[in-house]
Design a protein around this nucleic acid. Sequence first.
DNA 1: CCACCCCATAAGGATTACTTATCTTTCAAT
DNA 2: ATTGAAAGATAAGTAATCCTTATGGGGTGG
Lengths: 294, 294
Amino acid sequence: MLPELKIQQLRYVITVVDEGGFNAAAKRVHRTQPALSMAVRELEQRLGQDIFERGGKSQLTPFGQFCLPRFRELLGQHDRVVKDVVGQADGRQGHVHIATVPSVASRIMPPLLADFIERFPDLTISLHDENAHYVCQMVAQGEVDLGITSLWQSDDDLDYTHLFEDKVGVVCHRSHPLASRSSIDWQSLQGEKLIRNGTSRLLMGTEASELVENSAFYISNMISLIAMLEAGAGVTTLPQLAFPEHNANLCFIPLQEPDVVRRIGLVKASNRTLAPAAQIMEGFLLERLKDEPE
Amino acid sequence: MLPELKIQQLRYVITVVDEGGFNAAAKRVHRTQPALSMAVRELEQRLGQDIFERGGKSQLTPFGQFCLPRFRELLGQHDRVVKDVVGQADGRQGHVHIATVPSVASRIMPPLLADFIERFPDLTISLHDENAHYVCQMVAQGEVDLGITSLWQSDDDLDYTHLFEDKVGVVCHRSHPLASRSSIDWQSLQGEKLIRNGTSRLLMGTEASELVENSAFYISNMISLIAMLEAGAGVTTLPQLAFPEHNANLCFIPLQEPDVVRRIGLVKASNRTLAPAAQIMEGFLLERLKDEPE
DNA sequence: CCACCCCATAAGGATTACTTATCTTTCAAT
DNA sequence: ATTGAAAGATAAGTAATCCTTATGGGGTGG
C-alpha cells in the first residue's frame, strides 16, 4: 500500500540538488544523465508529486523542499548503518569474548593479545579465566566466542581444535628429596603426601590413578596450593603451564611414567557462526598456537 | 565502493526474524519463500557475512544480531519518512500560506476557511493581509503559496485567475446630501471633499480620475478613514467589499458613471509548482469563489 | 521409517535499471 | 534574428534484477 523508497533514488535526488543539475549529478554517481532523469521521474510518479520543477533548472518544488531534508536524514542514517555493518562484517570493528583456563590466561595470552591488538587496533577483547569445565560451558552457552582449554568431555555442541600439549609433572619444594631428579615415575611418589588439585583428574585412568585416589588433600585455589607446597606440606602434580614459572622455592619435575599430558585446544560452538571479529581472532590463535608447545 | 542496502531486503530480514521463519515471513510480505531466501542470501553475499545461521531454524548469527537493531531503526525511519512524504504528497498533511487584501481577508475568508478546515482537518493555514501590491510581491517571492487580490500590474512571474468583481461606490455619512441617492455619477461628486485611500487608484484612467487628482486628503489606514467619514469630514470611494458591512453611520452608494470595478483574482507564482496542500486550497478557492460576487 | 515441514537450488519469465542515440528547449553570443 | 552550446526529455534496445514454479535435501516427530 505505502510505496517503498529506494536508497539509490534518494541518493540521485540529493546529488542532483547538491550538484545543481542532472548532468553534473550523473557524472558524480557514474551514471548517464537519462538514468537519473528516469529514476527521479519514476520516484515522482510513485509519490504523485513532482520533486523538481518541470521547466527550468533542476529547482526543487515546495514538495521537493519538504522531502529533501527527510531524504538527507534517511540517506545519512543508511550510510552510517552500512559503515557500521561492513566494518563489523570484515572484522575491522568488533569485540571478541574469550575464555581460557587460568594457566593459559596468564602464561600464553598476554604476549599474544598484545600482538593482536597491535595488528587489529579497532578490535576489543574480553578475556575470562575459568576452570576447564566452565570454559566449555561459557562457549556452549554463547557467553564467549572462543575458549582455550582442555576438553572437559566430548560435546556435540562444541567444536574442538587441538593446539598443543602440556606435560604434567610433579611439583615440590626445592629442598624435597625428589627435587634433584630430572624425571619421575609414579612409583617414586608412593608414600609421598600428594595434594590433589583441579588438574589431578588428568591422572585418572593412568597407572598413577591410585595415587590420586589415596590422596587426602584437595586444594582448588592455586595460590593456596602454592603456599602449601612452599611450606613443604607435600607434593602435587600440575601441567607445566600451570606451574608458576619463576618460583624460587618450588621445582617442577616431569613425570615420565606414565607420560601424562593435558591437551589444550581451541573450542567454539559448533552450531553457531562466529562473529567476524571472532573469526579473525580464531585465525590468529590457530596461526600462533598450533603445535607450539609453549 | 560501499554497498547499498535495499529497503526491501531489510524488511525481508526483519520479517523473517519476527515471524520466526522464511515460510511465515514470505506469506506476510506476499512473496514466495524462495524469493526471500534468495534476497537474504544476496544481501549476505554482498556483506560477506551470513545473517542467518546456515543449518537449522532461521536463527541469527552473531553478526545478524549486530545488524538487526540497526536494520530495524533504519527501516523504522524509512517508514516514517514515507508516511510523512506521502501524507504531504496527497495533500492530507501540510500548511498553506495565503495572502489577501484586507477586505477579502475579513469579509470573504472567514466562513470559507471555516469550511476548509472542516473538510481538511490535517491542513493548517496562515492568512496574511496586505495591500494588493504587497500581496503580489509575497506570492512572487514565494513567501506565500496563494494570493487573493486585484492584480497590481501584469507580471510574468504571476499567474492570475479571475474570481469575481467588486463594484466601487461612494461612501459618505448617512446625513450627507448624497446619502439618499441609489446611485451616483462622477459629476455629482464635484465639489465634494473627496478623501483618497489605497483603492483610489482604481478610478485612475476613468472619467472620474480628475476627482482623485484634485483631492487634497489621502488616508491609507482604513480605521482612520472610517473615523473621518463618520465625523462627516468628507466622502471617499471604496470597493463594496472594503466597505464595513454593518456600519450604522455610513452608507455606500454604487458609482454608476463610470462603472468602476475592482477585479479580484487568485494569484500564484507561475514558475513554481504549488505544494500539494496548496493545490488542494487552490481547487477549493476556485470552486467556492469563481464568479460569485460575494 | 516415513511423512512432513522448512529451507536451498534451478530454470524461466517479468520487471526494472541503465545505456546510446536523438530531440526539444533555453540561454547566450554574435 | 540566427546559431551554438548546454541541459533535460524521450525512445529503443540491452543488461541486470526480482520473482515465480518446480524440485532437491536435511532435519523432526509420529
